[in-house]
């Protein structure tokens, strides 16, 4: 019961903050509310015993990526007058929401109707760094290696694109 209440609260926070994120005029506001979303998601992770992922989420997302965004916002020194004048923002938001509603509804309906839950009993140490690490390096070693290459690509790309051309 406690979990349900917690979940409901966190879910509400996540949804509200994400709505604020997409509707805030200034990017800095968006970023800040996005942090709230991320943290509430991290909390949701923790709620289901994914402790390692909870940490990762906080560190990487709320920490690294968001600081990066904030850094970029600062770095580019985007002033308010540089911001796009989004006259029809609310209309767009409304229209898109209406358009996507069937999609969400259908997916939710399908999820409701399907028999996915197995209610497995978590063993000791589930979701800890060891558990995840073992899994990562036994079953998922190939994706792991590939991701490293992906990061390398991104790195090369970022460097190539960001450096001033000579």
């Amino acid at each position: 019961m406690q979990n349900e209440i917690l979940f409901a609260t966190l879910a509400l926070v996540a949804i509200v903050s994400s709505i604020v994120m997409i509707s805030a005029h200034r990017p800095i506001d968006s970023a800040l509310s996005f942090i709230v979303t991320l943290i509430s998601i991290a909390a949701l992770f923790a709620l289901v015993n994914a402790t390692f992922l909870f940490v990762v989420q906080i560190i990487i997302y709320a920490g690294a990526i968001l600081s990066l965004i904030l850094f970029i916002i600062m770095f580019l020194n985007i002033k308010d007058e540089n911001l796009p004048d989004e006259k029809y923002k609310n209309r767009w938001l409304l229209a898109t929401s209406i358009i996507i509603a069937p999609f969400s509804a259908i997916l939710i309906d399908l999820i409701m109707r399907s028999d996915i839950a197995v209610n497995g009993v978590a063993s000791e140490g589930f979701g800890t760094i060891k558990d995840v690490g073992l899994n990562l390096f036994s079953k998922w070693v190939l994706p792991f290696e590939l991701v490293s290459i992906l990061l390398l690509v991104a790195l090369v790309g970022a460097v190539t694109l960001s450096k001033r051309s000579e």
């Binding site: 898109t96 358009i99 996507i100 069937p102 999609f103 259908i106 997916l107 309906d109 399908l110 109707r113």
Partner: peptide, 23 residues
């Protein structure tokens, strides 16, 4: 992106319709 979304949504509407009659 909007076209994509429209495509997605219409695909899902179709799918739902299909599955409704199937299930």
């Amino acid at each position: 992106a909007l076209y994509m979304l429209l495509g997605v949504v219409s695909g899902f509407v179709y799918l739902y319709w299909m599955l409704r009659s199937a299930v």
